[in-house]
Amino acid sequence: MLTVVAEDGHEGYAFQSPDVIRPSVVDKYLRPALVGEDAFYRERIWQNVEQRQRGSSGQLADKALSAMDQALWDLAGRALNLPVHRLIGGFRDKIAAYGSIMCGDDIPGGLATPDDYGNFAQELVSRGYTAIKLHTWMPPMPGAPDPRNDVRACAAVRKAVGPDIALMLDGYHWYNRSDALYIGKALEELDFLWFEEPMDEASMSSYAWLSANLSIPVIGPESMQGKYRTRAEWVRGNASDILRTGMLSAGGLGPVLKTAHLAEANGMNCEIHGNGAANLALCMAVANCVYYERGLLHPHLDYDQPPLYLNAIPDPMDGEGFVHASQLPGLGEDINFDYIRSHAID
């Protein structure tokens, strides 16, 4: 947990992998930019830290920038006793969630076959989901990648849930153009809502080609580096129909908002990638975002069981498939500080 403390005692928090916000990164890159600054000058702080990335030899990752920015937004919300989505300027108080299914596996009763996907999709609909996204098989699963098996899984899910549930595919990320086109044409026949990251996103021209040859919307880029600047190039190059961003790849709430506004100015939706309190707050503030990604989900996992460092999950879903905005100050995470203090490591 990254903690930012203001001079008046207010604090903000963000959770990230220890490898990303390890002490050497915090001490060398984050602390010098933060100490002595006004915590409400988030943009100035972010710009200052981002400029240190090039000289960091890859040590200062976008995820570290995201954690810092997230903690600063959380601090501001807690200091002003406001939820972050209202601090940004809220657009909605609830949003439809899509159930984001894990990648395929070879576990009995898991996601080993197309029928397993269909059966699990039926279960998700019974829980209230009105939209579902598949992640199909990837290496090192035996036989993966297999575009035909991906299509079989998609067909099994459509057959299982019927025509009224919105479906999306986020499959193997390194298909070639021919395989991506084959899958995309099949998804058109199955009336899927979008097709996500089927090829290496470093080849923007491949995505422009795919988008031009499919009627189903292509969404991206999800994981390509470059933050909002890369997304601007994708818009300019007609490389996708829906823009993609999120806390994991964008470098913070500020850059996500820049990307969303860029998409809006160009008549595009911008879907937020990933779950969690920060992404949920963004979904509540971004007008051109339709869904919240809830997951990852698997038949053998209980998503609604909070991790030990939280007292409750940040994104409970109601019976109609909506996740509601937190009304807690800050990002809305109900943090189990007692657990964290008792398990801290020096």
Rank of each mutant, 00 (worst) to 15 (best):
Q225V: 08
Y41P: 04
H10W: 11
H173T: 05
V218Y: 07
M247G: 13
L187F: 07
A166C: 03
A71Y: 02
A67G: 10
G12T: 07
F195H: 15
C154R: 08
A131W: 09
H273G: 08
I45V: 15
Y117S: 05
D315K: 02
S17I: 02
I45C: 03
A281G: 10
R152I: 02
H298P: 04
L111T: 00
H135C: 13
Q53L: 01
V161D: 01
R92S: 02
T259F: 09
Y29H: 02
L297A: 12
V25A: 00
A281D: 14
D8E: 07
P299E: 05
G143I: 14
A39W: 09
N48P: 03
R148E: 15
N311Q: 10
Y29T: 00
Y207C: 05
M1K: 05
Y129E: 10
L2P: 04
G171V: 01
G90H: 14
W73M: 05
K94V: 02
G143K: 14
P147Q: 10
H10Y: 12
E123Y: 03
S223E: 11
G220F: 08
P114M: 10
F192V: 14
A64I: 00
E222V: 11
Y291N: 04
D200K: 11
V161T: 03
V20H: 14
F40A: 01
N238C: 14
D318L: 05
V235Y: 03
C270N: 14
S342T: 13
C154Q: 05
P114A: 13
V323M: 09
D334R: 03
L169E: 15
